[in-house]
Nucleic acid binder design. Structure first.
Lengths: 333, 333
DNA sequence: AGAATAATTGTAAGTGCTTACAATACTGCT
DNA sequence: AGCAGTATTGTAAGCACTTACAATTATTCT
């Protein structure tokens, strides 16, 4: 069943059938109707390979993420897939893990699949050493590269970023305004977005006239238990803190656990703020105050920008989305 | 840059290049080496469209799921993608939502993309009325259909299922053995796997000599707060229960919240068992005893079966994976 | 060496679509 | 009617690969 069968049944040439297929306006309404009817009757579906050969596009976007089972990324994938589909694009998914080599391999693989663009979801794709990102930049010569929550300089590279700096700045400021004087900061990653979160915290302390030593900033595996253990050991070491700002809800959930174990009351003695407003924030007791990083808006913006690029529109190479502070029960403001 | 460029540089015909590309053994070692070298030098990558046209396969598997941001499905997608890739297959993802019509639409879309198989991840794809599943069965005439945690009769349809019946049977039995006499059952879905979970609970009660009215079984939206509210209202209505078995960790997390709100101690006065052993089970306080439905094994088995089908091996049309009861702090056994 | 056989390579015909360009069919106008 | 101009349709040449079959070369055997 191919375009010839349709053209025969409809008594037109294959060119006309192809035109109908592609929504070309140079077809009379009569003919179009007839062709569409024949297609319907025959249950014809165009062969994507042949189509791809001719058009050299498959209307497919490659999505790369380090780990699709991560709460945040799982949401991002959901929204990206949905929004791309609404625009008539399929998405092919690649979970790369965290090794640079694997990332490069899968990246090449996607390129060789002739995807129309690649979305790098999550801040884990940009390496600290510039030369490690060269493979991305060189691919950008062929197809647009979209970074979701990552930033990289380059022609044909577009970033959509949550304003993490403003988010943690605001959250930390609120803590201070509510009377906290010793906010601890817990984070996992030193990526672009990770770095901005930390800066926001630091700037807020500075502007709030609070000066704390470097032992008020700690890196911790993104794991509830790990966070709890770390906090317990910090307490044992005599560190005093009255609030905890974290870079993820997992760490914040660990902080809640810590408070329970140590018999500390939340939010009276300890305020806690999570990040991402994930399901975890509704799971702890009390429920987490958390920064909503607006994944949905971020994804929508990414897809919008991409469609702009495809349409030849001049789009900004960098878009920022504001975060939101969702107040729940682990803070007293 | 195409196969002709390579053939010229290597002074062979395009047929030979194609043979090298496809690992055809009828090429002398010398020639193969020369061709491979030329490919390497030229940085040649075969065009997938042309390849697909000739081979009529793209080594791509369609994965359908209702919602990739669901904790359970997100994990499944991760493992499926990984295992498929290990076997040299890409996966294209489709999140369908819960509407039958949308499911059918996306299903057709995947078929028209000429995927080599479709994996339906999750039990939400099998409808109660047989005629609503006809579209799946008719697609099975073209490509193998793999059901992950769903069951449907049919040629070229393969199911991999967690033994949910045994899982809840065992869990409920343990509750009874530990002295509980009034276990409540909370569930969300009436799908194939949902039905089996319920049956396991009921069978365990029967075998344990416990007879409870139908008000000990309740359906509830998969949502922490919804579960909490439901339990509170049941209690207000005077229903007495000493343990809760649930069909998901979300419901169990809601049960923990309920106990906190009502001032009931866990596990002394109330035992709770979740399902899926997701991250939620480590987030509540106390941590949830939960049934591990072995997603990873389930996915591995699905991919294995599929590769068997592709290889022409005779594989069973139905595989069962045993679940595990992970004991934590919401039960006293 | 020469025939028979096996291994390797090449030729050419698909595969199903797109699209530039050519051809034809309609308009309205004089 | 006849013409220019426009709308519609058709022809044929790609697109980059696979593969059956034919042709060539190498190997073995007598």
């Amino acid at each position: 069943m191919n375009i010839y069968d349709v053209s025969k049944k409809a008594s037109v040439s294959i060119a006309t059938v192809s035109r109908v297929l592609n929504g070309n306006p140079n077809v009379s309404d009569k003919t179009r109707a007839r062709v569409l009817e024949v297609m319907e009757n025959l249950g014809y579906t165009p062969n994507v390979f042949a189509r791809g050969l001719g058009l050299n596009t498959m209307r497919t976007i490659g999505i790369m993420c380090s780990d699709s089972s991560d709460l945040y990324l799982a949401n991002a994938i959901y929204y990206l897939e949905r929004d791309l589909r609404l625009n008539g694009y399929d998405s092919i998914l690649c979970c790369t893990g965290y090794e640079l080599e694997t990332k490069q391999k899968y990246f090449d693989l996607l390129c060789s699949k002739r995807v129309d663009a690649i979305i790098l979801a999550g801040s884990k794709f940009i390496e600290p050493r510039p030369k490690d990102n060269a493979y991305i930049q060189s691919a950008a010569a062929m197809i647009p590269i979209m970074l979701l929550n990552g930033y990289l300089e380059g022609e044909n590279i577009y970033s959509t970023i949550c304003d993490d700096f403003a988010a943690t700045y605001h959250a930390a400021s609120q803590l201070i305004k509510s009377g906290r004087r010793k906010p601890l900061y817990l984070y996992t990653s030193t990526s672009y977005s990770g770095a901005n979160k930390l800066k926001g915290y630091q700037a807020a302390l500075k502007d709030g006239g609070i000066c704390l030593g470097s032992d008020y900033v700690h890196q911790c595996r993104k794991d509830i238990t790990a966070a709890k253990e770390l906090l317990l050991s910090l307490r044992d070491q005599g560190l005093e803190f009255d609030s905890i700002l974290t870079s993820s809800d997992s760490l914040a959930a660990g902080a809640v656990k810590y408070a329970h174990t140590a018999g500390i009351s939340i939010p009276n003695e300890l305020s806690i703020i999570g990040y991402n407003n994930s399901i975890l924030s509704r799971c702890t007791d009390p429920e987490l105050t958390s920064i909503d990083s607006k994944v949905e808006a971020l994804c929508a913006s990414t897809v919008n920008t991409l469609m702009g690029v495809f349409g030849g529109v001049n789009v900004p190479s960098r878009t920022t989305v504001a975060a939101d502070l969702i107040k729940r029960a682990t803070t007293n403001f």
